[in-house]
Design a binder for these strands. Structure first.
Lengths: 179, 179
DNA sequence: AGATGCAATGCAACCCGTTGCATATCAATC
DNA sequence: GATTGATATGCAACGGGTTGCATTGCATCT
């Protein structure tokens, strides 16, 4: 599984607690690899047992203690091993596509509305990505190394969302013409 | 879950056995909702117990018996209920994106090769979709109802794969420029 | 004659993700 | 004074997906 490795990639960039990781997964990393705090805590513990990360308890004033995790040498070895390993493309899972395929067995107008809703959701996410793109990568041609890689991941998110928006609008146009 | 409903959508189009369904999931339906034969057999049994489908054992000569499943009235009710229900967009899961984000922690050249491999895989899938598009939907403007819906699902597959190919090529160009 | 492969169905074990719940501290608000 | 909300961590149960294995019959290939 890749959750361990996604967490280590994030921790290698900057050490952090489970709670902080959960918030990172809601933002940047979570755009292409989702995880809840329960998953993260469980996996962090497993990785601690395996020696991939080390925890340091940090007392804070005005807040509960936190455990700040760092990737160990063993963890870095594992990360390199995993990075070198080939990755199989994940099979697609699109529930809306299943509903579209079965649309004529139910209420086509309801599906139309649902597609419009998904279009709006995707357009909102796309806007969010574009804001990050302009804010964090104003001059993409000059990027190198890690920053370039981060930018390219964001580009993937933008392309996927744009593709979805275009698809949803094609569906809406076609369903209107079929009414 | 949607596997039950994906199976019912498929069975509503045409009755079939678990084995036949497994092959359909390798082709058309599986493009946007993957399932193995073990999953399918298990779920078919569950649906039979729930009364959503009915099985009829059919003897064949030269081949083992098969159980041909049909969607029952109760199953159609459940399908309509599910189709009317809102669908939440599934969170993305892209392992290659995680590796790209952590690329500088490992061998960047190996990642380059891996991206090239994924580009080739996506391009092959895309070609397959385009063949189906030309063969089964030569005149998309005239499509209506169920055929239109099937076409629109295929269009989604084409758009997604094309988006991936474009993304992978952007990555390859950028990594070359960064060498 | 033996091996491979396809058609056809199924069990069992394991892992992962989801959901619901629980707990504690402090700040800010009502 | 009580409630909400953020910070912070965690357990337990359930359900779905994955993987490995098992069986039977026939056809075809070596």
């Amino acid at each position: 599984m890749a959750l361990e490795h996604a967490i280590m990639v994030s921790l290698a960039e900057r050490a952090g607690s489970g709670y902080e990781l959960a918030r990172r997964f809601e933002r940047s990393i979570g755009f292409f690899w989702a995880a809840t705090h329960q998953q993260i805590y469980r996996v962090l513990k497993r990785m601690d047992d395996a020696g991939w990360v080390q925890a340091e308890t940090v007392a804070q004033d005005g807040r509960p203690d936190k455990k700040v995790y760092t990737v160990s040498a063993l963890g870095h070895d594992e990360l390199r091993r995993w990075l070198a390993e080939p990755t199989e493309p994940a099979p697609m899972r699109d529930e809306l596509a299943v509903k579209l395929r079965g649309a004529s067995l139910g209420d086509v107008q309801a599906l139309y509305d649902e597609v419009a809703r998904h279009r709006d959701l995707a357009a909102t996410r796309l806007d969010g990505y574009r804001v990050i793109e302009k804010r964090d990568f104003p001059d993409p041609a000059r990027l190198t190394g890690r920053n370039l890689h981060h930018y390219l991941v964001l580009r993937g998110g933008i392309r996927v969302e744009q593709g979805l928006v275009d698809w949803y609008e094609e569906i809406l146009r076609a369903l209107e013409a079929d009414r």
